[in-house]
């Protein structure tokens, strides 16, 4: 198991970062979150899947254990206000329709993305279509603060629920497209997602401890950027780092990639909003 290689590096003293795997159990306010699971059957090259939390330093891990320490919660609070805020030509707020509050969305995040009327839909699409079509409000920018705060609030309602996206039926062609993207070696460095996150997770690439690139914790709060990071923003960053032309946030390519990557997380608990370095 490649995770073991990390131990060797730490002992060689090449890095001062503490052993992330010491903290094997993630328990948030008494609720246990599964960070390791048997890989779903469709994953040919992995036996076990791990949450990105398992690859972080104990300092970063600790920030996710208590919601009072989790910096992402400030944004979740802002989203609670946005949920009540009237916006747009119809004089409505989210809560005008969703009278039971965000709790109504328990479980939704764990099943996203999904196909609706032949279109592959991710959470940002659901939020913006309700804003535009029902509220008569302006759409939010994909990686904007309002949008990602709302994605985090809705995601939080599924925390502790296993990821379970559908990959067959209507979803199959999108899933296949996403899988193809995952294994394509992009850019002048000719690297695929799989090169880093499937073949080499658990090892160091320069100063970074490579995880499996799972998305069960998104949007994640990144300490480096001090804000919530969307899935598509993370995908862009990783593709840019191969010296490639990336795809746009909200592109069909990234929707398909999101479905495929989400399916690689099937079985891990939703951790939204996670904290990363």
């Amino acid at each position: 198991m490649k995770i073991g290689a990390w131990t060797a590096v730490a002992m060689l003293g090449l890095t001062s970062v503490t052993l992330a795997q010491d903290g094997n159990t993630l328990s948030i306010d008494g609720e246990t979150i599964v960070t390791e699971a048997v890989a779903p059957a469709h994953l040919e090259n992995l036996d076990t899947i791990y949450s990105g939390w398992r690859f972080r330093t104990s300092e970063t891990q600790a920030l996710q254990i208590d919601d009072f320490d989790n910096p992402a919660m400030i944004f979740v609070d802002q989203a609670l206000d946005l949920f009540e805020a009237v916006d747009g030509s119809e004089g409505k707020s989210c809560s005008s329709c969703h009278t039971d509050g965000p709790e109504e969305f328990a479980g939704l995040h764990a099943s996203m993305p999904k196909v609706v009327d032949g279109k592959l839909v991710v959470m940002e699409d659901l939020i913006n279509s309700h804003r535009q079509d029902v509220m008569g409000a302006e759409p939010w920018k994909w990686s904007g603060a309002d949008m990602q705060a709302m994605v985090a609030l809705i995601g939080l309602q599924s925390r502790g629920t296993p990821m379970d996206v559908t990959i067959d039926g209507d979803a199959a062609p999108f899933w296949e497209k996403g899988k193809e993207l995952y294994y394509t070696r992009f850019g002048q460095l000719e690297m695929s997602c799989a090169n880093c996150h499937e073949d080499n997770y658990g090892t160091m690439i320069r100063a970074d401890h490579l995880s499996q690139g799972q998305i069960n914790g998104f949007p994640t709060y990144r300490l480096k950027q001090a804000k919530l990071i969307s899935r598509h923003n993370r995908f862009r960053g990783c593709i840019r780092d191969t010296r490639a032309e990336t795809f746009a946030e909200g592109s069909d390519e990234f929707r398909a990639l999101e479905l495929y990557v989400a399916s690689r997380s099937n079985g891990l608990h939703v951790e939204t909003p996670a904290v990363r370095q």
Partner: peptide
Amino acid sequence: SMMPSFYKTEGFIRLGDEYTGKAH
């Protein structure tokens, strides 16, 4: 190999303009 090809100029998929994320 995952090792980049350091003296190669063609055959790339979506070649970018260095690390800008934009097209070459």
